[in-house]
Write a protein that binds this DNA or RNA. Structure first.
Length: 414
DNA sequence: ACTGAGCGA
C-alpha cells in the first residue's frame, strides 16, 4: 500500500490523527451497491486505449463478463471511459483496489463503481479539496490516506500534461460524514512533512462570490455612452439610496472615458445598485456595474490574470514552441514567419520588443506538431540570418528555466 | 501556486 506518513502538526490530546480515525472507515449505512456491484466504470482513459487492452488487464483479477470502451456513435472516437463487468462482486472489489490508477498507455486509469444515477456525482456533496501536497504523493497514496474515513467514490491528484503532480487534488466520498471527518482529522496535518490544507470543495465561481461579499460603498460603472453625465448617474443610481458623490472620468478636453464611480452612503445600497444595474442597457450600451477596486487591488488582479494566461499559453505550447535569440533587429513578426514556415504550420509567431517597439533580438515560433518544431530547431539553429547566427531552442517553462539557471549558478542576461 | 469530471447495453 502506498500509505503516506501522517503526523499531527501540533500535539493533539491522546490522538495521532488519521490512525485514530479508523472508526469512520466502517461503512455505517453506506449504499449497498458499493459492496456487491459487479460493474465498474473505468475513466480517464488515454485516447487509444481499446477493449482488448482492458480485457487483458482486468481478467487477471477475475472472470470478466464484458468490456466496452464507449465511443462516439459517428466518429468512433473514444469517449475516454469504459465499462468492465465481472461475474463476481468480490473480483470487482479486488480489481478496483488493485488496478485503480494503473497507467494505460501512459495515463493512469480511474476506476469507480458504475452508477447510472448521476445525482450523487452531480451534487458534489462530500467532495473535498486538498492542497499543498508533496509532489511525491500520487493518486494511490492519496486514496489510501483518505479511504480511512469512508468509501471514496473518486479521487485524483491534479497533474500537468507530463503527469507531474500540481500539488493539489480531490477526494469525493459517498457520505457527507466521511468528508467532514477527513477534513477535521487531516486539515493542517503534515503529509510527508508538508502541512496540507483539507477543506470542502468549493467551485471557483462560488469562491469569488464569497470574496465579493465584502462590504463596499464605492461602485464602478463602465461602458457608459459618451453623453452620460454625473447627473445621469446620480439619477439612475439614486434609486438605490443616498449618493455622496458621482463622477464620470474624462480626457483633458472633457471627452468622456466612458467609465465612472458612484459612492453610496450605505454599503447595502451599493450592493443593491450592483445587483440591480449590472448588465442593464442605457443608450444601447450594456453597463458593467461592480464593486470599485482600489488601484492596488486592480493591479494585483490584472497581474494574476496575466500570469495565469502566460502559464496556460506555455502549457499549451509545450514541445511546440521554439525560443529564438540573436535575431537581427530587421526581423519582425512577418519575416520570422517567412523564415520558419517551410518547416510546418505556424500557429503563433512573435518577436519580443521593448516599449519603444524596438526588437529585443529574441522571439517565439510555435508549430502545430512537435515533429515540425523539432525539424525547424535542427535546421535553423546556428543558421546565418541577416549576418547573425540564429539561436534556436525549445521554449522552456519559466520555472524550469529558473531552476536550470540556478543549478548551473548562471544568471539570466535579461 | 492551487478548487474536477464522470456512467452503456
Amino acid at each position: 500500500m502506498a500509505q503516506v506518513q501522517v503526523q499531527p502538526q501540533a500535539q493533539m490530546s491522546g490522538s495521532n490523527g488519521a490512525a485514530s480515525g479508523t472508526a469512520a472507515a466502517a461503512p455505517s449505512g453506506g449504499p449497498a451497491v458499493q459492496f456487491q456491484s459487479t460493474s465498474l466504470y473505468v475513466g480517464d482513459l488515454e485516447e487509444t486505449v481499446n477493449d482488448s487492452q482492458l480485457y487483458e488487464m482486468f481478467s487477471q483479477l477475475g472472470q470478466v463478463v464484458s468490456v466496452r470502451v464507449c465511443r462516439d456513435i459517428t466518429t468512433r472516437r473514444s469517449l475516454g471511459y469504459a465499462y468492465v463487468n465481472y461475474s463476481n462482486p468480490i473480483d470487482a472489489v479486488r480489481a478496483l483496489d488493485v488496478l485503480n490508477f494503473t497507467p494505460l498507455n501512459g495515463k493512469p486509469i480511474r476506476i469507480m463503481y458504475s452508477n447510472r444515477d448521476p445525482s450523487i456525482r452531480k451534487s458534489g456533496a462530500a467532495n473535498i479539496f486538498i492542497k499543498n501536497l508533496d509532489k511525491t504523493i500520487d493518486n494511490k497514496a492519496l486514496y489510501d490516506t483518505f479511504s480511512v474515513f469512508g468509501n471514496i467514490l473518486s479521487c485524483k491528484i491534479a497533474t500537468d500534461p507530463s503527469g507531474q503532480s500540481k500539488g493539489y487534488g480531490f477526494v469525493q466520498f459517498d457520505q457527507e460524514e466521511a468528508a467532514q471527518n477527513a477534513i477535521s482529522k487531516l486539515n493542517g496535518m503534515l503529509l510527508n512533512d508538508k502541512q496540507v490544507f483539507v477543506g470542502p470543495f468549493v467551485r471557483k465561481q462560488e469562491r469569488e462570490n464569497a470574496v465579493n461579499k465584502a462590504k463596499f460603498n464605492n461602485v464602478f460603472v463602465k461602458n457608459l455612452s459618451e453623453s452620460t453625465t454625473e447627473e445621469d448617474l446620480k439619477i439612475i443610481f439614486g434609486e438605490f439610496g443616498n449618493i455622496t458623490s458621482s463622477v464620470v472620468m474624462r480626457e483633458g478636453d472633457g471627452k468622456s472615458k466612458c467609465f465612472g464611480f458612484v459612492n453610496f452612503e450605505n454599503a447595502d445600497d451599493a450592493a443593491q445598485a450592483v445587483e440591480g444595474l449590472n448588465g442593464k442597457k442605457f443608450d444601447d450600451k450594456e453597463w458593467y456595474v461592480g464593486k470599485a477596486q482600489k488601484k492596488s487591488e486592480r493591479e494585483l488582479e490584472l497581474k494574476a490574470k496575466f500570469e495565469q494566461n502566460m502559464k496556460e499559453a506555455v502549457d499549451k505550447y509545450q514541445g511546440l514552441n521554439l525560443y529564438l535569440k540573436n535575431l537581427d533587429d530587421s526581423i519582425d513578426d512577418e519575416k520570422l514567419k517567412e523564415l520558419f514556415s517551410e518547416y510546418g504550420m505556424i500557429t503563433s509567431c512573435k518577436v519580443m520588443k521593448d516599449p519603444n517597439g524596438v526588437s529585443r533580438g529574441s522571439g517565439f515560433v510555435a508549430f502545430s506538431t512537435p515533429e515540425e518544431a523539432n525539424r525547424a530547431l535542427l535546421e535553423m539553429n546556428g543558421k546565418m540570418v541577416a549576418n547573425k547566427p540564429l539561436f534556436v531552442a525549445l521554449a522552456q517553462r519559466k520555472e524550469d528555466r529558473r531552476a536550470r539557471l540556478q543549478a548551473r549558478d548562471v544568471h539570466p542576461f535579461n
